[in-house]
Computed example of a mutant assay.
Amino acid sequence: MEWIGFDADDTLWENETFFRSTQAGFARLLEGHAPPERIAAHLFDTECRNLARYGYGIKGFMLSMVQTALELTENRLPGEAVAEILAMGQEMLAHPVHLLEGAAGAVEALSDRRRILITKGDVLDQERKIALSGLAERFDAIEIVQHKTPDAYAAVFARHGITPDRFLMAGNSMNSDVLPVLQAGGNAVLIPHDLTWLHEQGDDPDHPRFHRLERIADLPALVAKLTP
């Protein structure tokens, strides 16, 4: 493999943890209006419907929480509750970056390859996390895209002169880091995270260019195995 692509959120550093804790606080805020499971399901449906409008990231999540709260309260949500939801989102936007175990070592161990970080979501928030991670200088290129689709990966390949079959993408999302890469002609390895968002989950494909690891620390060994 000549190029190694890395996902960021929940592959190199924690992300979903902050969404889950905020969602728990949101459920407590609305506990008098619906049971927790209904709140969670309604919020998930709202987020999925809004992806085309807001994209991925905390700001879209904030707006989806407000919309969910309005719908579950039949538009009787008090201003204080809106302020609390906004405060939750602002706290998320200020959270520190916690690297996952083995992430920095795996990136460093692959310094003999071309390394590219490919992440999606709100540009300002992603840039903040990349800067705070301390990993930015270890990558040959960084791409922040709105959606990880086969066309988006193909555009990244074209911009950097990447030959798809010599590219391996590592990430925790089946629907963002694996399936679209395979469709674009590349190789992909799933490194699951315990708290991967439901929207990003999917079944393992029966595909010769698909691989699975339990730890990112094992990525350099896989790359060596796949390189003739």
Rank of each mutant, 00 (worst) to 15 (best):
W3M: 08
W3S: 05
G5S: 02
G5D: 01
F6L: 05
D7C: 10
D10I: 07
D10Q: 05
L12R: 06
W13N: 01
N15H: 13
F18T: 05
F18K: 02
R20E: 13
A24S: 14
A24C: 06
F26S: 02
A27P: 01
L30N: 10
G32T: 06
H33G: 02
P36V: 03
E37H: 14
E37G: 01
I39E: 00
I39D: 00
A41H: 04
L43G: 06
F44T: 03
F44V: 00
D45L: 11
T46N: 07
E47T: 06
R49D: 15
N50A: 14
L51R: 15
Y54R: 00
G55D: 11
Y56T: 10
I58G: 06
I58C: 10
K59T: 15
G60M: 01
G60R: 01
F61M: 03
L63K: 10
S64I: 00
Q67A: 14
Q67T: 14
Q67L: 10
T68K: 02
A69E: 04
E71S: 15
T73N: 12
E74T: 13
E74F: 00
R76L: 02
L77E: 06
L86K: 06
A87Y: 04
A87T: 13
G89C: 15
G89E: 11
P96E: 01
H98F: 13
H98G: 01
E101P: 09
A104L: 13
G105A: 13
A106W: 04
V107T: 09
A109M: 06
A109V: 13
L110V: 14
L110C: 11
D112E: 13
D112H: 14
D112W: 14
R113I: 05
R115G: 09
I116W: 11
K120H: 07
D122K: 03
D125H: 13
D125A: 15
R128L: 13
I130S: 05
A131D: 12
A131P: 02
A131I: 01
L132W: 06
L132M: 09
S133H: 12
G134L: 07
E137K: 10
R138T: 07
D140K: 00
D140Q: 11
D140A: 09
I142A: 11
H147G: 04
D151I: 12
D151T: 14
A152I: 05
V156Y: 01
F157P: 03
H160Y: 14
H160I: 02
H160E: 04
G161V: 07
I162M: 10
P164M: 08
D165E: 11
R166I: 00
R166C: 03
F167M: 01
M169N: 04
G171P: 08
N172D: 15
S176Q: 10
S176L: 07
V181P: 05
L182N: 04
G186M: 02
G186T: 01
N187R: 15
N187H: 15
N187D: 02
V189T: 15
P192R: 08
H193M: 08
H193V: 04
D194I: 05
L195F: 07
L198P: 03
H199V: 06
E200R: 09
G202M: 08
G202P: 09
D203W: 00
P205K: 07
D206G: 04
H207E: 05
R209P: 02
F210I: 06
R212M: 08
L213G: 10
E214W: 04
E214M: 09
E214F: 08
A217E: 14
D218M: 07
D218Y: 12
L219D: 09
L219V: 11
P220S: 05
L222F: 12
K225V: 00
T227G: 00
T227D: 01
